[in-house]
Amino acid sequence: MLFCLKKNISSFSNVNIKNIICLNWSESIRNVRTFPIEWKRPIKIPFHDPSKTGDGSLSLPIDMNKSPVMVEHSTEIASANYLVKRLFTFDFLGRKYAMRQAKEEMVKFVQNHKYDEKSMEVKIAKDTATIRNLIEHHKKFPRDLKTKTYLNSLIFTRQKKMKYLRKWDYKKFEWLLEKLDLCYVPYPETMDRVERKKSIRRLTEKYCENYKTEKLQEFKKKLDDQKQDFLKEKVTTLEWLRKEEIECGIEPTVSESDINEAKEQLSKHLETLKLKPLKVNINRNILSDM
């Protein structure tokens, strides 16, 4: 068994044969790291995370020291004692009423007119207010399963409404995303299972493509560096040829237009070097379904 080990693993340059004898079969392989790719299994993100729901800002503007709109306009409370004023705040009424007013403010930010309640932009605004409120609730009470299921279903239905609005009115859809600070990420068409072997194969493909482009770009750069000297030689040799042929009394094979063309090529090449140095776009998206 040991002889087999020696024969197989001695081909790797990184491994000392002395170490292999004292180690086990499995431990010796773990020390070998000739493979440059590392794969990490993606950890599950919870459903209420902003990267999944699409909410940019997850906080609602709820002030518990504020009083409701009906009370703010009354003249009697404006002249009342500070203790009476404090009794009519949301702190004593409850958080439910504060949230209700925040939802109304969010709807006013979007709706067409005062009685507009059924349009898609209003429905989405109402949903976002409830979602952002319930996410805060879910963080405090994660074992409240009724609200958890309600929240999960609301996120799905809001996505459905956004999809509907996108189909009917794309300009309004894009305007609404910025107004409510939302993101729209559709679901993938094909659901691939995340597997170890499959994802390592994908990463190797990506690595090989990047390696290939790097090598090609290096070779291209080497040739481009030789271009300047070559063009200078071309101009001098063409001039020398024309002068010699005229002196010998033969009809010149090289015309003046050929020399001018070579000079133009040289001037253009020098301009390109000054304007834009070569850049390599290695990290392009190679993995595609097609």
Binding site: K40, R41, P42, I43, Y184, V185, S199, L203
Partner: peptide, 14 residues
């Protein structure tokens, strides 16, 4: 904000 212009895939590497 709108990510519907390209193909969306399942995340396989972290």
């Amino acid at each position: 904000r709108d990510f519907s212009d390209k193909v969306i895939t399942v995340q396989y590497n972290d």
